[in-house]
Computed example of a mutant assay.
Amino acid sequence: MIWLHVVFILSALRLWMIRPDHQPTKKKRSTPCSTCIILGSGGHTAEMEQLIQSLEEEKYQPRTYVYAATDQLSKGRIQQLEQRCFPQSMAKTTYYDIPRVREVGQSLQSVPRTFLLALVACFKVLLKCMPDTIICNGPGSCIPLCMLSYIPRFLGIKHITLVYVESCARVHSLSLTGRLLYGWVDLFFVQWPDLTKKYPKAQYHGILA
């Protein structure tokens, strides 16, 4: 049993050391950045559309989009955006649907099951695309993929950069997803300057519009 305790302690230490706060500053990339973008729904997708339009086509490719299987509307909107903004590289773009972690009105008792299903689906996505960067802005559907992105980091295979953009609707406090991911993402952006006073790691560069 002693060796189990040793493995646990070493694993916990390794996990602590690979947190963003303990990582050296990355050098500027000279090659395209394969980018995975997790779509929420409704307002989350609308804000993500604004962010995507600001990406430089030649720098952020190939692009992978992950969305809830019950949210075909977001997929359609992003496909139209791709045709409009990234005509040269959209052929390399891929789309994956995953089970939603929790549907509106879903009982809390059934969440562990749907979370596990989403986790398995996200693991398959990660194996297929293994991106350089993951960009998300909530809701909770982004948590499984962000969690799994730590596996290659933990094993020393690849450091997948995690970028989280808090919703514009969060003026005075972070969302539940934002609070859960705050200490684990490499870049954390908010859209209201007052939030940087409460959360020192957060960066403010204006509102997505």
Score class of each variant (00 low, 15 high):
Trp192Arg: 00
Leu148Val: 05
Leu162Thr: 03
Lys75Gln: 14
Pro139Ala: 09
Phe189Ser: 00
Arg100Asn: 10
Lys124Phe: 13
Gly76Phe: 03
Ser175Pro: 02
Tyr60Lys: 00
Thr93Ser: 11
Pro200Gln: 08
Trp16Ala: 15
Val125Ser: 04
Phe188Ile: 05
Ser141Thr: 15
Gln109Leu: 15
Leu119Pro: 03
Val190Met: 04
Met17Cys: 15
Met90Val: 10
Val125Asn: 02
Tyr65Ser: 07
Tyr96Val: 01
Tyr95Trp: 12
Thr25Asp: 14
Glu57Cys: 08
Thr161Lys: 14
Val104Lys: 13
Lys28Cys: 11
Gly178Trp: 01
Leu15Gln: 07
Val125Pro: 03
Pro112Gln: 06
Ser30Arg: 14
His159Arg: 12
His5Arg: 15
Arg113Ala: 14
Val165Gly: 02
Phe86Asn: 01
Pro112Tyr: 05
Thr45Met: 02
Gly156Asn: 05
Ser54Lys: 15
Tyr182Ala: 11
His159Gln: 12
Val125Ile: 09
Ile134Val: 09
Arg29Lys: 13
Cys168Trp: 15
Leu174Thr: 01
Ser173Tyr: 13
Phe8Trp: 14
Pro87Leu: 10
Phe115Val: 13
Asp194Lys: 13
Phe123Arg: 08
Thr114Glu: 03
Trp16Phe: 15
Ile38Arg: 00
Ile151Leu: 13
Lys75Gly: 04
Lys124Val: 14
Asn137Leu: 03
Val66His: 01
His159Tyr: 09
His44Pro: 08
Phe115Ser: 12
Tyr96Arg: 08
Val125Gly: 04
Arg84Phe: 07
Thr114Gln: 06
Leu73Val: 15
Leu162His: 06
Ile143Leu: 14
Glu57Ala: 12
Ile38Trp: 04
Val104Phe: 08
Tyr67Met: 05
Thr196Glu: 06
Ser141Phe: 03
Pro24Cys: 10
Cys33Trp: 00
Leu162Phe: 07
Ile134Thr: 07
His205Ile: 11
Ile157His: 07
Lys27Tyr: 07
Ile52Asn: 04
Ser149Phe: 06
Tyr199Met: 02
Gly105Asn: 08
Thr70Trp: 04
Lys26Cys: 11
Val111Leu: 09
Ile134His: 00
Leu81Val: 09
Lys197Tyr: 09
Tyr199Leu: 01
Gly183Phe: 11
Ser107Lys: 12
Val171Met: 08
Leu15Asn: 06
Pro87Ser: 10
Glu58Gly: 07
Leu39Thr: 04
Met90Tyr: 11
Leu73Asp: 14
Arg63Tyr: 07
Val171Gln: 13
Val185Glu: 03
His44Leu: 06
Gln53Ile: 06
Met147His: 11
Trp192Phe: 12
Ile151Thr: 08
Pro20Ala: 09
Pro62Cys: 07
Leu187Ala: 13
Glu49Val: 13
Leu162Val: 05
Leu117Trp: 11
His44Lys: 07
Leu55His: 04
Ile52Ala: 10
Leu119Asp: 03
Cys122Asn: 12
Ser173Trp: 10
His5Glu: 13
Gln79Val: 02
Arg77Ser: 02
Ala69Phe: 01
Met48Asn: 05
Cys122Ser: 15
Arg100Gln: 13
Ser11Met: 13
Leu176Lys: 10
Ser110Cys: 07
